[in-house]
Design a protein around this nucleic acid. Sequence first.
DNA 1: CTTTTGGGCGCG
DNA 2: AAAGCGCGCCCAAAAG
Length: 551
Amino acid sequence: MPFLFLDIETDGLDSYTCNLVTLQILTQSGKTILLKDPDNLDAIKPKLENNVIVGHGIKFDSKFLKYRYGITLKNVYDTYIAEIAISGGLLARRKGASLKDLVFKYCGVTLDKSEQCGFKRGVDLTEEQKEYALNDLVYLPQIMQRQRAMIDYLGISSVVDTEMKALPAVVWLELSGVNTDVQKVAEINSQLEERRVKLAQSLANSFKPHTVNINSPVQLKDALNRLGIPVDGTSAGELMKYDHPVIDTLLEYREVNTLITKFTSRIQQFINPVTGRVHSDFNQYGAKSGRFTSSNPNLQQQPSRFTEWRSIYKAASGYKIITADYSQIELRILGQVSQDKEFLRAYNSGEDLHQLTASKIYRVPLDQVTKVQRTVAKKVNFGLSYGLWVPGLIKNLRQAEITLGTEEAEKVIKDYFKAYPSVKSYLWDISEEGAKKFALKNKAGRYIKFERTLDKSKINSVKRQSKNLPIQSLCADMIKVAMANIFLKLEPKGVIRFVNTIHDELCFEAPEAMAEEVAQIVKEEMEKAGKVYLKDLPCVAEVTVADCWSK
DNA sequence: CTTTTGGGCGCG
DNA sequence: AAAGCGCGCCCAAAAG
């Protein structure tokens, strides 16, 4: 398929409330086209749909084309996403992959971005603006060509391909948004406000005659010390070491305050005036593992323990919410990549791995495992693959109100590795490899790079990341493949919305009559994408159909 | 004055 | 061998 280089100028960032001002195209043969204030793009629609569209940050352009002109770009190459992949994820969440950066890196030219503003619909372009608009395009062919050479050299073409196929799904995701029950948010907010006032008052009384800003960790620590509570810091974990009524009030205040400041009082500002829905930003290569990040608002960290909260995200009338998530995906991946016999056997015979681990470390029969033992085993199962060690395990369990001594914790870890010897050797080998090369690849070929360092504690951090990132990133690959395939199947139906993605979870909104069919397709595609890598144990996606988002 | 950093905490 | 991985947002405090 031939390439077409594309860029647009708009009078603002939001595709629902802002307008396209110019659209610029550069063909492979070097021809340029500049369209000003187009009413429709019917003339070039086939061209846009039958070429690979190359651009920098093409998600932005795609959204305007899709919403304003009904054109869905399905074959794209994004120099921004490609650059993050080439950097081994080092450029995720950082500056350094802007068009300006790439023009300098691959073409040796310093780009002038001063004309970026001031594009208005209905107002003629100055010569400078015309030049600026086309100037962004002329470097793209060379950037792409040199990136592709790097991609081949690094052997990451299949991962880049996954990214480019997932991109149209991200456009679908951001344009879809999520329906939000604003009324209910207001109710929850006022209830919480009431509680917060009372809690703050009670704390102020306890700290009298001093006036303390309870939101300031420094002031708070001093105030607690004055009360004779010798806290070192004011984190929940530290506070919980001490038994005192003020601590209980404080912890409750923190919880309520967090809910208000981060969630209930903020959501209103994100309601889009055109759609009435919340359209968060999703960055498909936001984490160096290849995971998505989400912001404004961050839909990946909406409270789940405060169970009432997620029901504010409800299906529009006549629709259902379909939620699907991979079951224990990171543990299954650990089993697959380590090839641990006991891990594989347990998953293949449908055993509960946490219960199994508990029975091994406590040396009790499976059916005699207590709840506390299973909780400990669960923390160990998840934690050790992240590089958790004795102090971390103790700290972690204390927050679950389980007390473990140092010797006990040491024994738990020792027994864990004795039970799963291949997990032990896998984690050891991969951490050594990461620290030696400062680079790794996961089983999908995704490239993960670390900053080189001689600092011992930083090297240890690289070792811990080396244990976890190949696992975390493989899950990212699975879910991206799944969403790309689901996009091809469901988006053309025109009535289904892609509402959210949270690392191992996908969320859709579909007309009631189609909900079950959608649920089935989503489950199938997720499991199909997972099975590509989980060859030796089952991949399971659990799917639910409901009126609201829940967990 | 604005920007950056760090503690704290939400999620997977 | 080491004292748990990946993120974003709020607030206060420090730095520019």
